[in-house]
């Protein structure tokens, strides 16, 4: 199904906001925002039934431009606010949009435990390997040896994979895409929102202003072209050795499993407690 950008502009953007948006020219956040809107358009649900929550950072600006129920919350706490919304109104589709530092450093605990709890939420994590908005400090996903304003002579710590962390923490659905694979990304986001359980979509994005420039990776075009070369689909990655996969990005659905959902289990507990008290509340 072809969804023209014009339709997205007219249907989902808040026109009282200043456009063009605040992100740098060529920033992947805009591509991710378009993919999210295409996924929501395909879901065919009312705009009132969608809640977007975001934390602080460049990614935090995304819900402010979009005409849904939106929350722009404190740093790292997008998932906690989303959890609250979901517990109060389980019928809503709640999507938390976070950056890599937002989700795994400041909100790291919230992220792990939201995955463990398996609430029926969707988390979209934009991974650009750096804290872009605050001035280019290194984040938990900055690769070893990379340069940033706080690791001028090369980063001495190792990065970790957000998607693999989510799999280990117990999320129901984990997928990864890059901004080059925009069509795959919107299919994955659609699948994630439809999925009953905690769904994580990690999107590898480009920050050419803070990260690319300091590491000689070129501008937006060069960085996005590199994602195309590095990306390996999961089906192909299974047949490759660990040595071949070094420096590659595995894209596609990494985990899709059925697990008990927190809100439904809570409903059952309430019924059990009510029965134990002889039907009295």
């Amino acid at each position: 199904m072809v969804i023209p950008a014009q339709t997205l502009r007219h249907t989902f953007l808040r026109h009282n906001k200043k456009f063009p948006h605040v992100w740098c020219p060529g920033c992947g956040n805009g591509i991710i925002m378009a993919a999210l809107l295409r996924a929501i358009y395909r879901l065919d649900v009312s705009k009132d039934d969608i809640v977007l929550a975001s934390g602080i950072g460049c990614s935090g600006r995304m819900p402010t431009y979009l005409d849904f129920n939106t929350l722009h919350t404190t740093h790292g706490r997008a998932l906690t606010f989303a959890t609250g919304v979901k517990l109060a109104r389980p019928s809503l589709n709640v999507v938390a949009i976070m950056g890599d530092g937002d989700a795994t450093a400041i909100g790291g605990n919230h992220f792990i435990h939201a995955a463990r709890r398996n609430l029926n939420l969707t988390a979209i994590i934009i991974n650009n390997s750096i804290y872009g908005m605050t001035g280019g400090q290194y984040s938990p996903t900055t690769p070893f040896g990379a340069r940033s304003t706080t690791s001028v002579y090369g980063h001495i710590e190792h990065d970790f994979s957000i998607a693999e962390l989510a799999v280990t923490a117990g999320a129901s659905f984990v997928a990864r895409a890059t901004v080059y694979h925009a069509e795959l990304m919107d299919r994955l986001i659609e699948q994630a929102i439809r999925k009953r359980g905690f769904a994580v979509v990690e999107v590898i994005s480009n920050c050419h202003v803070q990260y690319g420039r300091r590491n000689n990776l070129g501008g937006a075009v060069e960085m996005i072209r590199r994602f195309k070369e590095q990306a390996v689909h999961v089906d192909r990655a299974e047949k490759m050795s660990a040595e071949e996969l070094r420096g590659k990005i595995t894209i596609g659905v990494l985990t899709d499993r059925e697990l008990p959902i927190s809100t439904e289990e809570y409903k059952k507990v309430r019924e059990r407690a009510r029965a134990a008290r002889g039907g009295k509340v």
């Binding site: 023209p4 950008a5 992947g28």
Partner: peptide
Amino acid sequence: ELHCPDFAITVS
């Protein structure tokens, strides 16, 4: 159209 970060391209 799919990769324009600024919603500025429409192909019809």
